[in-house]
């Protein structure tokens, strides 16, 4: 069997994602890997369900999209799990009053709600502050964040962001005396963004002992092998969700072969079956009843100083309800 990929760029735009899915369907395509963001999945979901198009997202994590029986699959666990890991990390690191600063979209709102719930269960009061996405800059929002941190007397900030907005926010936070004197915790979104590896953000990360969580199956030889091959071929480090994307493509291929015919419903049924026995760089890919990765582990990442400059490093793991650090990130 020969596979022919058709690649369309949606620039993480909701509208373009829907246009692309419609365009791909008109070309007779029944299996789509992507789109990436939860807000995009929400937009394409009805069209995909109505037309029996199997959508496999490697990076959508909003818990609100965990819906059984639809045509949406996600090779990554929902943020309900990550919120547990991130809230544990913040609590374990001594945060006792937090401001959650988050994207005002499907991903950010749902993540923030779960974080609030888990932190309040631990007795940690939180104040939530959302920001609009897609702006040229976030200096004004960061100033309001500093004001909120000071007025609430918070000793930590949890940032729920993507790469560009996350980098922008951290670069401005690095210039704020208030925000440079509280602890920072961060979601998986900005992991891998080269803008975070500037000297200013690197120094800030070290000063505030910035830690983030991300979906990761630590000490997986298949992950190490993929990371090595990507570095050799493209000269870049594996960023968050790369292994989930790799497994999404593999699963799509195996499901099409197993289905025996190019039919959305047949491929969906086959996908559930092949995922039960496939083990890839992201670990065991079996889906739960909502079509999300059933078993998702979480790692802890930091920005560390090395001889070649600042780099992302996995420094811990979320295990049996607590964070276990595997190495020291900051002096």
């Amino acid at each position: 069997m020969e596979f022919r990929p058709v690649i369309l760029d949606d620039a993480t735009s909701d509208e373009t994602a829907l246009q692309n899915v419609q365009s791909l369907y008109q070309q007779g395509i029944k299996v789509i890997v992507g789109p990436a963001a939860s807000s995009q999945i929400k937009v394409v979901k009805t069209y995909a369900d109505d037309n029996k198009i199997v959508i496999i997202s490697p990076s959508s994590t909003a818990p609100t999209l965990a819906i059984p029986g639809d045509f949406i699959f996600r090779t990554v666990g929902s943020d309900a799990g990550q919120a547990k890991a991130l809230s544990t990390l913040a609590y374990q690191e001594g945060a006792r009053k937090l401001v959650i600063f988050f994207r005002n979209d499907e991903y950010g709102n749902a993540f923030a709600d779960f974080l609030e719930q888990y932190l309040e269960e631990k007795g940690v009061p939180v104040s939530k502050l959302s920001y609009q996405t897609g702006l040229a800059d976030y200096a004004s929002e960061v100033a309001t964040l500093a004001s909120r941190v000071q007025s609430e007397g918070a000793n930590g900030v949890i940032l729920i962001a993507f790469d560009k907005d996350g980098a922008n926010i951290l670069s401005h936070a690095a210039e704020s005396d208030i925000l440079s004197n509280v602890r920072w915790f961060i979601s998986e979104g900005p992991h891998g963004a080269s803008e975070l590896l500037t000297a200013a953000v690197g120094r800030f990360a070290s000063k505030v002992r910035l830690y983030g969580t991300r979906p990761l199956y630590i000490a997986n030889p298949l992950y190490e092998d993929l990371a090595k091959r990507v570095e050799e071929r493209f000269g870049i480090e594996l960023a968050v969700f790369c292994e989930h994307l790799y497994d999404a493509i593999k699963l799509a291929g195996w499901a099409i072969i197993r289905a025996g015919e190019y039919d959305g419903e047949e491929i969906r049924n086959a996908l559930v079956e092949v995922a039960k026995t496939y083990y890839g760089p992201s670990g065991w890919t079996m889906f739960d009843s909502a079509g999300d990765k059933a078993q998702q582990d979480y790692g802890v990442w930091a920005i560390v100083s090395t001889a070649e400059g600042y780099k992302f490093k996995d420094v811990g793991v979320f295990e049996r309800g607590s964070i276990v650090f595997t190495e020291q990130a900051y002096p």
């Binding site: 005002n104 502050l129 959302s130 702006l135 004004s140 929002e141 004001s147 007025s151």
Partner: peptide, 21 residues
Amino acid sequence: MENIGIALLNAYLGIPVSFRP
């Protein structure tokens, strides 16, 4: 409007900063 305005609206009326645009 984008800096002082939204900061005051957020501090005194609780209007989210996402209203800046």
